[in-house]
Computed example of a mutant assay.
Amino acid sequence: MNAARPERPSGWVLGHVAGAPVVLAPSWLLAAVVLTVLFAPNVSAWTGQTGTVTYVVALAFVVLLFASVLVHELAHGLVARARGQQPHAFVLTLWGGHTTFGGAAPTPATTALVAIVGPLANIVLAVLFLVAGRAVGGDVLLGMLLLSGAVANGFVAAFNLVPGLPLDGGRVLEAGVWAATGDRHRGTVVAGWAGRLVAVGVVLVALGTPLLEGRTPDLVTVAWAALVGAFLWSGASGAIRGARTGRAVDALTVQRVGSPATAVGARASLAEARAAAAAAGVADVVVVAPDGRPAAYVDPAAAASVPPALAGTTAVGAVSAPLPVGTTVDGALVGQALLHALSAASAHGPVLAATVEGRVVALVRAKDVVAALRG
């Protein structure tokens, strides 16, 4: 599975491929222990042996399985890099693995191609393991492991091709809807809902199959299905939320999140500021320094406390809150570029002045931007 997340994951760095670290997450240790314990009875049944050797062989199979997962993820990253999308990290986790990127794929074709090569890599591995296993012989322990690797890779490939996020098949579905509609976010929402259906389906299959066959559902199987279903539901829901936020980001403009404002000089009185606001038909007033830089804004509560009779003799600076250096953004920016600018400027203060060609056009409050992104 692949995702576009810029955060560097925690864990042990095993090396670097394509300029990105290969990270072993701490949760992998739990997965290795659990899978080794679950696989050990199969090893015992194959070999007729018990004790430490069964767990050593089971652990070898788990390492082989996660090596296959790593090949799956490296396929994602290498193809992505060839298509101009730099991988950020290859991560092995409790749930297998994922590849993170510094940004989203630029086209539907890239999304689909990067997604599909992961399962294709597992299909190639399944064939290689199958050929090697048959050559060694299924009655030999090494042959058994190789044939198990073939089955495991075949399952990983088939499962990842299921059309629902966060699986690779979901990425392909997302790319298809994106290509058909021209709307990336619609593709993500459709694939996210498909992923939710898959999550529910995994649990229903685990419960329903034995019941239809007249058997009692196995508690361990149901528990694993519930965990996998919860993981898939969480990933699908996160994708849907991300798509909605992405749509809000694309539609982001100063006009949507800002309050129209006008500007007055630092020596203006409150009465002059009120007159300027009334003439411009706006509620907010920005005070500019002699060099033209937005230096403060009139605080509505402080201004309201001044009696009308004193407005003409009250300096506008007396009822203003400062705008620190760096709290100015380009009001002509839109979408992701505007969000980056707002994010950088908000580090200096929660209220920002938006200007277009040096002219103050709006005041933007960080809380209004957050509200807009939350829909």
Results as ranks from 00 to 15, higher is better:
Gln86Asp: 11
Thr50Ile: 06
Val136Tyr: 13
Ile116Thr: 03
Val33Met: 15
Pro119Trp: 06
Phe101Pro: 00
Leu59Met: 15
Val162Gln: 13
Ala75Gly: 08
Leu130Trp: 14
Phe129Trp: 02
Ser68Lys: 03
Asn122Ala: 04
Asn153Met: 04
Gln86Leu: 07
Val114Asp: 08
Val162His: 04
Phe155His: 12
Leu35Lys: 00
Phe90Ile: 07
Pro41Ala: 11
Ala60His: 09
Val43Met: 01
Trp46Met: 05
Val37Ile: 14
Trp95Asp: 02
Val91Ile: 14
Leu113Gln: 11
Ala132Thr: 08
Leu38Tyr: 14
Gly137Met: 06
Leu120Gln: 08
Pro119Met: 10
Val156Lys: 09
Ile123Met: 13
Asn160His: 06
His98Trp: 08
Phe90Met: 06
Gln86Tyr: 13
Val37Ala: 15
Phe66Ile: 09
Leu92Asp: 06
Gln49Val: 04
Ala80Glu: 01
Gln86Asn: 11
Gly133Arg: 05
Leu94His: 02
Gln49Gly: 07
Ala157Gln: 05
Phe159Ile: 10
Ser68Leu: 09
Val43Ser: 01
His72Ala: 06
Leu78Gln: 10
Ser148Val: 15
Asn122Gly: 03
Thr36Pro: 00
Asn42Phe: 11
Leu65Ser: 01
Leu147Gln: 08
Leu146Gln: 03
Thr50Pro: 04
Pro106Gly: 12
Gly77Trp: 00
Ala135Thr: 14
Gly149Ile: 00
Leu146His: 04
Gly118Asn: 12
Arg83Cys: 14
Gly149Val: 00
Val37Gly: 08
Leu78Arg: 13
